[in-house]
Structure formats: C-alpha cells, structure tokens
C-alpha cells in the first residue's frame, strides 16, 4: 500500500484551501472556484487508477465476469 499518495493528496488539499481563501479575499471568487476545481481534477487523476483497480478486485471477488 502506497502511503505517500495520502500525504500528497493531503498537502494538495491544504494548499488548495489556502489558495481559495487568498483568491476569495482578493475578490476573485471565480478564480478561487476554478482553482478548487482544478485541484479536485488533479487529485482524481492521481487516484483514478487505484479506483479502477478496486472495482476490478470487487469484480473478481464476487465473480461478476
């Protein structure tokens, strides 16, 4: 199990929250929203392989071929 990924996602989350507050305070709400969205997409990109692996193992576990 790769624990580094969890720390990476956590640090991205912290950074995104700071960026969001910063841009919100500067009066650029739409950019704050866009950065949050981009962060979510990046994190999804990092975990999508693992999610597909999970579904594959569920399929094999319950023999749903």
């Amino acid at each position: 199990m790769n624990v580094d990924l969890i720390f990476k996602i956590a640090s991205i989350g912290i950074l995104l929250s700071i960026l969001h507050t910063l841009l919100d305070n500067a009066g650029k709400e739409e950019f704050a929203f866009i950065t949050t969205l981009v962060g979510v997409v990046i994190v999804f990109g990092a975990v999508i392989g693992l999610i597909s692996k999970l579904f594959d193992s569920i399929k094999t576990l319950f023999q749903l071929y």
Binding site: L15, A26, I42
Partner: peptide, 23 residues
C-alpha cells in the same frame, strides 16, 4: 492594495502546488 499581496503569495503557492504534484 488589492493585487500586490495576492500576486506575491500566489507565486509562492503555485510553486508549492507544482512541486507537490510533481513529487
């Protein structure tokens, strides 16, 4: 007043984000 601080901290934070994503 509106932009200077924002751009300065934005530069550092975006750099941090790139580093974290790449590592």
């Amino acid at each position: 007043d509106k932009n200077e601080k924002m751009f300065k901290s934005l530069g550092v934070l975006v750099g941090l984000a790139i580093v974290i994503i790449l590592i």
